[in-house]
């Protein structure tokens, strides 16, 4: 299995009010083609910065990439021309946003928002698709995320849809341009557990159906166990441990990992 995304020795710092602080130290991880990889850690451990650096949406300044490489399909994202990078963003590699309540623009219909994204993705890739073609694709993707009535959903404003539906739209958004890599930022954390479980199941199914690589970023190890085969554990801007998810659960090498595992709520009670 060839490696699709490989982060090598990534270091990032932030400078605010003249004070520089390093938030990522020599982070390395690899996502093979079609694999499901988790990056776990608590809030502030640097997972979101890692993800934003990969996507190229880190605000620069205050952020600065101090060193390292991010290889996507063999090419370094950090040194390639901006034009080429833009061509990848939101297309070959795209993101599932975390919060369904705030990640959709409240004043435009779903169709309008997905249409705009698709239009510019097409333009960057030099694809020729007219308005009607885009609409067909939008309805197709909405059906793919198991929307019962894609036509109606497409015409709706976000406020007319439930949290679970909005989260599915965020997934649809990421699938629009047939990506090879999905980066999911704690999908469904803002939802109730039942809905979150459905969303995770859907995400896993879609990834398998389409043979996509998935990089799942989360603080919830319970989520990881259900979806990902391989896990990286992050703490204070460093990768502290990595390995097959099962192995990490059974024999965590680090205290930090042990604590994370202990923090997963159990349904079986204290002694279960």
């Amino acid at each position: 299995m060839s490696v699709l995304l490989s982060v090598e020795g990534l270091s990032v710092s932030f400078t605010t009010y003249g004070r520089r602080s390093q938030v990522l130290h020599d982070v390395s991880l690899a996502v093979p083609e079609g694999a499901q990889i988790a990056l776990v850690g608590e809030s502030g451990s640097g997972k979101s910065v890692t993800m934003k650096t990969i996507m190229g949406i880190l605000p620069v300044p205050p952020a600065k990439v101090e060193g390292g490489r991010i290889l996507f399909a063999g090419r370094d994202l950090l040194t390639m021309p901006e034009r080429d990078r833009l061509r990848l963003r939101g297309t070959a590699m795209s993101m599932v946003f975390q919060d369904p309540m705030s990640s959709l623009n409240p004043v435009f219909t779903i169709q309008d928002q997905l249409g705009t994204i698709l239009k510019y993705a097409d333009r960057r890739l030099g694809r020729d698709r007219d308005r009607r073609g885009r609409r067909v694709r939008i309805l197709e993707v909405l059906a793919q995320v198991r929307m019962r009535d894609p036509e109606r959903v497409a015409r709706s404003f976000p406020i007319m849809l439930s949290g679970g539906m909005r989260q599915r739209i965020l997934i649809a958004m990421a699938l629009l341009s047939e990506p090879r890599l999905l980066i999911a930022d704690e999908p469904g954390t803002a939802l109730d557990v039942t809905t979150q479980a459905q969303i995770l199941k859907l995400l896993k199914d879609l990834v398998t159906e389409n043979g996509l690589a998935l990089l799942m970023i989360t603080h919830n190890l319970g989520v990881v166990r259900q979806t990902c085969g391989y896990t990286y554990v992050m703490n204070r801007g460093r990768i502290v441990e990595h390995g097959a998810t099962q192995a990490i659960f059974e024999a965590p090498a680090e205290d930090y990992t042990r604590n994370l595992i202990a923090a997963v709520p159990r349904l079986t009670g204290r002694n279960g």
């Binding site: 949406i57 963003r89 993705a121």
Partner: peptide
């Protein structure tokens, strides 16, 4: 807002 960051991550151009 998150939706502005999302638009950026999906490559919606600056001016738009």
């Amino acid at each position: 807002q998150d939706y502005i960051e999302a638009a950026r991550a999906f490559g919606v151009p600056d001016r738009l």
